[in-house]
């Protein structure tokens, strides 16, 4: 695990220009989205969420715009993830092929994008379902965590192994059996970093400011780092022997 973290830090440093660029793009689009739909979404300390209760109040034009905006944000996130993953892959594989690099990005993008769309739709539908039936939101949180846990490494499988979604799902099962601990570590690291930062900033700043700071930190540091770390962890699949954490 230490090796993966070190490797991730190294890649993070090397690709930081790109991360900044992508982060800014995402930040701008997210900012527009927030400003445009401030009544329908809210910023939590860990991300941006839809206010399901307000959805019924939205008109068609607004809905289309919002949907389009979400698709753009997800596309940007997908692109960021793919670029960082390919960068990690090339770093770990120690070989750089510009043509292959681009081809890898372009060929992986639709598949990964598809996944995030599906994931967004699942989240959206389940949220509506829970809202309508007024079920315990804690259960919904657990379900979201389980789904994200299961599908966490699918985008990496698609990018690194250059396979389609179906094959990625098949590979996922094997991968989980071998390295089931890694997604837990991955999730735990993300959670711990966020909680620590929230606690630190919470002591100094009011909650609204903390939300914005955390959004920025997540966009520029935590999320890119976790993406790189995930790719690194996934890369252990190709190791000669399973590395001990």
């Amino acid at each position: 695990m230490i090796f993966e973290i070190k490797s991730s830090i190294e890649i993070f440093k090397q690709a930081y220009d790109l991360i900044i660029l992508l982060g800014f793009v995402i930040l701008i689009v997210t900012g527009i989205l927030i400003l445009t739909f401030q009544d329908y979404i809210y910023i939590s300390v860990t991300g941006i969420f839809l206010r399901i209760s307000k959805i019924t109040e939205i008109n068609l034009l607004e809905f289309i715009f919002a949907l389009f905006s979400f698709l753009i944000v997800i596309a940007l996130y997908t692109l960021s993830l793919i670029i960082l993953t390919v960068a990690t892959k090339e770093y770990r594989a120690d070989r750089i092929y510009p043509s292959v690099f681009i081809k890898n990005i372009t060929s992986s993008f639709p598949e990964v994008y598809k996944i995030f769309i599906i994931w967004f739709l699942i989240q959206f539908n389940l949220s509506v379902l829970w809202y309508v039936n007024a079920w315990d939101p804690m259960i919904l949180s657990i379900i979201f965590f389980l789904i994200s846990y299961i599908f966490l490494f699918i985008p990496y499988a698609i990018v690194i192994e250059e396979v389609d979604f179906d094959r990625a799902i098949r590979k996922l099962y094997i991968f989980r059996k071998e390295l089931a601990i890694y997604p837990i570590m991955y999730s735990a690291i993300g959670l711990i970093i966020n909680l620590i930062l929230i606690f630190i900033f919470g002591l100094v700043f009011p909650l609204d400011i903390v939300r914005i700071i955390m959004l920025i930190i997540n966009i520029f540091i935590i999320v890119p780092f976790l993406v790189i770390l995930g790719a690194n962890l996934y890369f252990n699949k190709f190791s000669l022997s399973i590395r001990k954490i």
Binding site: E162, F238, L240
Partner: peptide, 18 residues
């Protein structure tokens, strides 16, 4: 080196196999 090489070969084999 071995790790890197084998990782690469495994990755490459997977890619070519696919």
């Amino acid at each position: 080196n071995r790790q890197v090489y084998i990782q690469n070969i495994n990755l490459g084999m997977g890619l070519f196999w696919n």
